[in-house]
Structures are given as structure tokens and as C-alpha cells.
């Protein structure tokens, strides 16, 4: 079996550094207000793109269940809030669709 250690180390470096450098560089200095706003928008824009990516990358046979899971989570969290209940409800919905369709 081939050793993948060089690949693993390389991947670690390019994964860890982008996670580390901004945190080190920005956490101690006061930020330009515009830049600060930009960074505070990141969670929302990241989530928007991640959710869409999930829906688009789903395998064809998973597409309906994925959309249903996302839809149920949206409905639950809109009405009730609560991360764990929303996620649980959507997992159940996705399961039922995958199991019975």
C-alpha cells in the first residue's frame, strides 16, 4: 500500500494556514469599520452558498430527499427555532423519502 504522508502533510498545510493566518492577523487590531462589516456579513453569505452547493451537488437519486431535508429544516426553524429539533425533523423527513421512494 502506498504511503500518502506527503499528500496529507501538504493538504494539512493548505488547510490549516488559511484558517490560522486571518485569525492571528486580525484578532488583535482594531478593524476599519467597512472591513469589519464585510467580515460580519461572511456567515450569512457563506451559509447561502453552502446550502445551495449542498442542493446542487446532491446525487440525482438524493436530490428530492436533500431538498426536502432543507425545506423541512427551513420550515421548522422558521416556526419554532431550535437547531437540534429542526435538524432531527429534517433527517426524519429525508429518511422517509429515501426509504419509501
Amino acid at each position: 500500500m502506498k504511503s500518502y504522508l506527503p499528500l496529507i502533510v501538504g493538504m494539512m498545510a493548505v488547510t490549516y494556514l488559511p484558517r490560522l493566518l486571518p485569525l492571528i492577523a486580525l484578532s488583535e487590531r482594531p478593524l476599519n469599520p467597512l472591513l469589519r462589516r464585510f467580515f460580519l456579513y461572511i456567515p450569512y453569505t457563506a451559509l447561502g452558498a453552502l446550502i445551495i452547493r449542498g442542493a446542487m451537488e446532491a446525487e440525482p437519486e438524493m436530490a428530492v430527499a436533500t431538498l426536502a431535508g432543507i425545506g423541512v429544516a427551513a420550515a421548522f426553524s422558521w416556526i419554532r427555532g431550535g437547531l437540534v429539533t429542526s435538524v432531527a425533523a429534517s433527517i426524519i423527513a429525508a429518511f422517509l423519502i429515501l426509504y419509501y421512494l
Binding site: L47, L50, I51, G54, A65, G69, A74, L83, S86, A94
Partner: peptide, 13 residues
């Protein structure tokens, strides 16, 4: 799929 549900349930509120 629960992970995408989680992203959604974080965003919607």
C-alpha cells in the same frame, strides 16, 4: 443531509 439542514436551521432564524 442533516448537515445541510443544520446550515438552513442556523440561517433561517
Amino acid at each position: 443531509i442533516g448537515l445541510y439542514a443544520m446550515f438552513t436551521a442556523i440561517l433561517v432564524p
